[in-house]
Design a binder for these strands. Structure first.
Length: 832
RNA sequence: GCCCCCGUAGCCCAACAGGCAGAGGCAGCCCCCUUAAAAGGGGUCGAGUGCCGGUUCGAAUCCGGUCGGGGGCACCA
């Protein structure tokens, strides 16, 4: 075997120079942002614009995989580009290191979650280094460190003070066999992922954050993001928030002091409300139920409670329900209408009760048919009577059977009826949201302990700030406790504390926080990850945030991104940050797939990153990812060619070796122009993040230079050197190792990335002449080389007098000439 | 059902703001080099933009419809 670089000096080895360049970059501190928290720490150069480029931090589930390589390649190219352009760039890294997989791995391997987690973090950190990602390692944080999660607890307490955190009973997924609470992703088609038994809903008292209170602001502030976030993500968030406008209507119920309130988007149809439905699982249903209906109701309700997602997801399931033996008073018709309990009404949306208008709502109509209830059409849409067709009419029309509102158009009627109800105190205009409050309690071990103490006499008592952090117990707990309560229930010694308020015996809250709490603010801690004066250093936050560009997958559209936006607004309201949106710009990256499908062990189509790195080296893997297509599109690894990337990098490397000492000439003018035009174009492509096209242009520049070196200007021509210098500086964003290696082959002082982004000289970019297409009736008939600044009149004359055009026109009259100097002339002739 | 994104050579992808459909790569083919091999060099072939219609002097691009793919929300009143 030959030793690369010794016996085969002209062979490019994609893995040869990695350690060398990693050392050079680290020794020179090239990736460290200047003045992380204040101008005094380093800052000779604080006039530079600051840019904070953040990629969503990884979960340490093992070594890095292809998906990681893509996200961090994209963010790294952007960070490196901005740095070359002269920005003071912060490119931080941390780990989302709490979470369920650590517990599962720990159970499987019989070790503790912490050991597994921190070992993985070390593996990933080293892989990031070897991938050439230009992180500022001083930012490094792990959310599972007590130094981090104590601030989760601190923030929780602030939210509690503001009334944003509160406790209520809510259902959780419960596996009766494993006797444990399951996360949604552990429930597959209503069954426990692990043991396959049917998951039940069980009520537990849990902590929530009032995201609903921020629903309108989350919606309104999207105006700030429009154009800088992908429209798709904004649409998903809009869907998720699900604003709907309408009215609350109060229905008096016999024998009940307070009326029952419903929400409707169609107050105009209230004259057609012939019955009333309450969600069977809502407390209201049990309350309203008449004694003689109780047995039937409870049987129905219990059945509904065992129904889980599987049943709920079944399409077109027949409507079921039971009468509650009570009546409500339709506030406009004065009619007594029967009240039913049914499962098609959701307890958690609106008020958990609806006025049913079967003629104009398909669900109500289906229910009416099943129960034999009357159907009264109150809006004439010109369609057939819903009572006979079984199809509810939801379109536009005119009111009928609606007393004094008859004849009004739908939109006017909505206004008029709402106003009328409001006047009579029977209702009001209302806006409601689909968005729910954020359930933050998790019955898990590996997370942030909730800093609350439950005292038999004082109730819920916050842990005083000076007693934070509430540390996770390292021993004395069972990950899977016998009765399936929170693992921390089993840490009896840990849980037993004295009440901070009365000093009596009390117990800690044994739930931990959703890891989305950790990730809702982590980026703010990056500038000063060991800060002890608060969750984040306000000076650092003021300097670096909002994040200039945030990079990650769109699977986080409605989860993480929503929570981070919410938390930012809360922090803003607490006076802790000066902005209301955390991420000024969002770039999505697609997934890396294989043969048209997501990679998975079971499909046998996994592509191993380390293997790819071994075969092609980090540069080629990065280039392959970025060249494959626009960043937000999925990459099918079967469609791309890492060997093609290696070939290209090798060509550049060889070309650098082929150049000779520059001579004293002015250099090839034509080549200089081409180089500067490409630099100009590539700069725009970087600005607009069309990185795949930028790679293509760099390949083009490579070919130009190869040709010039071999057959034109020659290897000593200064223009060739200039082109090569520009190429390598731009290349360093994509392929930093190769760029530096080739740069040093040219005999230039390392590192290439200290030499800045090439500047295109406008005088060289400008084209003296261009080729103008001359069309006849839209078809190109001639091409003329003309001066770029030719006037429309001159160009028009030139075109009309062109030999080919005269011939093509063959004497036809010219109706019109469109001139778009200097690129195009279109001559419209009369029909022959 | 409502909403969003996308359909361009065999494949992955370009085409600034409507203006000459092709930059780059993969695969194929040809030549040269080397020949033990090719992650050596050079060249070449190749689509009228899913389909129908409209606007326009001119449409991949704008509009309407339709088909196909991907995604989000959903008994949400």
């Amino acid at each position: 075997m030959t030793e690369p670089g010794i016996d085969a000096p002209d062979k490019y080895d994609p893995n040869l120079a990695i350690d060398k360049w990693l050392r050079v970059w680290e020794d020179k501190h090239l990736f460290e942002a200047d003045g992380l928290v204040d101008a005094g720490t380093a800052g000779q150069d604080d006039a530079r614009p600051r840019s904070c480029v953040v990629s969503m931090y990884p979960y340490p589930s093992g070594d890095l995989h292809m998906g990681h390589a893509e996200v961090y390649s994209i963010s790294d190219v952007i960070a490196r580009y901005l740095r070359l352009r002269g920005d003071n760039v912060l490119n931080p890294i941390g780990w989302d290191s709490f979470g369920l997989p650590a517990e599962n791995a720990a159970l499987k391997r019989d070790l503790d979650p912490s050991t597994w987690t921190y070992a993985n973090i070390e593996v990933q950190a080293e892989s990031f280094r070897r991938l050439g990602v230009s992180f500022d390692w001083r930012t490094r944080l792990h959310t599972s460190d007590a130094d981090y999660y104590r601030w989760n607890q601190w923030l929780f307490l602030r939210l509690l003070e503001k009334g944003i955190a509160y406790r209520k009973s809510a259902p959780v997924n419960w596996c009766p066999v494993d006797k444990t609470v399951l996360a949604n992703e552990q429930v597959v088609q209503g069954k426990c992922e692990r043991c396959g038994s049917t998951v039940q809903q069980r009520d537990l008292t849990q902590w929530f954050f009032r995201t609903t209170q921020y629903a309108q602001r989350l919606l309104d502030d999207m105006a700030q993001l429009e154009g800088n976030w992908p429209s798709e993500i904004l649409a998903m968030q809009r869907n998720w928030i699900g604003r709907s406008t309408g009215a609350y209507v109060d229905f008096a119920v016999e024998g009940r002091a307070e009326p029952v309130r419903v929400f409707t988007t169609r107050p105009d149809t209230i004259f057609g409300a012939t019955f009333f439905v309450v969600a069977a699982d809502a407390p209201l249903a049990a309350e309203l139920c008449a004694p003689e209906n109780r047995a039937e109701f409870e049987a129905y309700r219990d059945k509904v409670r065992t129904e889980t997602e599987i049943d709920r997801l079944a399409a077109d399931r027949p409507k079921t329900g039971v009468p509650l033996g009570r009546h409500a008073l339709n506030p406009v018709t004065g009619q007594q209408i029967p009240i039913y309990a049914a499962d098609y009404v959701l307890a958690t949306y609106g008020t958990g009760a609806v006025m049913a208008v079967p003629a104009h709502d398909q669900r109500d109509l289906d229910f009416a048919k099943a129960m034999g209830l009357p159907v009264v059409a109150v809006l004439d849409t010109g369609e057939d009577d819903p009572a006979t067709t079984g199809v509810a009419t939801a379109g536009d029309g005119t009111l009928v059977n609606s007393g004094r509102f008859d004849g009004l158009a739908k939109a006017d009627a909505i206004e008029a009826v709402t106003a009328d109800l409001q006047e009579r105190g029977a209702g009001e205009r209302a806006v409601i949201y689909r968005l729910r409050d954020w359930l933050v309690s998790r019955q898990r071990y590996w997370g942030t302990p909730i800093p609350i103490i439950h005292c038999p006499s004082c109730g819920e008592v916050p842990v005083p700030d000076d007693q934070l952090p509430v540390r996770l117990p390292e021993t004395g707990y069972e990950l899977r406790s016998a009765d399936g309560a929170s693992p921390l229930e089993s840490a009896t010694e840990w849980a037993a504390v004295d009440c901070p308020s009365c000093g009596g015996a009390a117990r800690r809250d044994t739930d931990t926080m959703d890891t989305f709490v950790d990730s809702s603010w982590y980026f703010l801690r990056y500038p000063d990850p060991t800060y002890t004066g608060g969750p984040f250093n306000p000076e650092g936050v003021a300097r670096w945030f909002p994040v200039a560009e945030y990079i990650g997958g769109k699977e986080h559209a409605t989860g993480h991104l929503m929570y981070a936006r919410f938390m930012t607004k809360v922090l803003h309201d607490l006076g802790m940050v000066g902005f209301t949106e955390p991420f000024a710009k969002l770039t999505n990256q697609g997934q890396v797939i294989m043969n048209g499908r997501s990679m998975s062990k079971s499909l046998g189509n996994l592509v191993n990153l380390q293997e790819q790195l071994g075969l092609y080296g980090p540069d080629a893997v990065r280039v392959t990812m970025l060249f494959a297509g626009p960043p937000d599109e999925d990459i099918d690894w079967a469609d791309v060619s890492p060997t093609g990337a290696v070939k290209w990098l090798a060509r550049i490397w060889r070309l650098a070796g082929d150049l000779t000492t520059p001579d004293a000439t002015d250099g090839d003018g034509e080549l200089r122009q081409q180089t500067h035009r490409l630099v100009d174009e590539i700069t725009t492509l970087f600005e607009t993040r069309r990185l795949n096209v930028a790679v293509a242009r760099l390949m083009e520049l490579t070919s130009l230079l190869r040709k010039a070196c071999d057959s034109g200007a020659g290897p000593a021509d200064p223009a060739v050197h200039e082109g090569m210098s520009a190429l390598l500086r731009m290349l360093s964003c994509f392929a930093p190792f190769t760029a530096d290696e080739a740069w040093s082959r040219l005999g230039l002082p390392s590192s290439v990335i200290e030499h800045g982004w090439p500047e295109a000289d406008p005088a060289l970019v400008f084209q003296q002449t261009v080729v103008c297409a001359v069309q006849v009736a839209g078809k190109v008939r001639d091409r003329l080389t003309v001066a770029t600044d030719i006037t429309e009149t001159d160009l028009r004359d030139l075109a009309l007098n062109s030999e080919k055009i005269v011939k093509d026109l063959a004497g036809r009259a010219v109706l019109k000439v469109i001139v778009r100097a200097p690129n195009l002339v279109n001559i419209v002739p009369a029909k022959a």
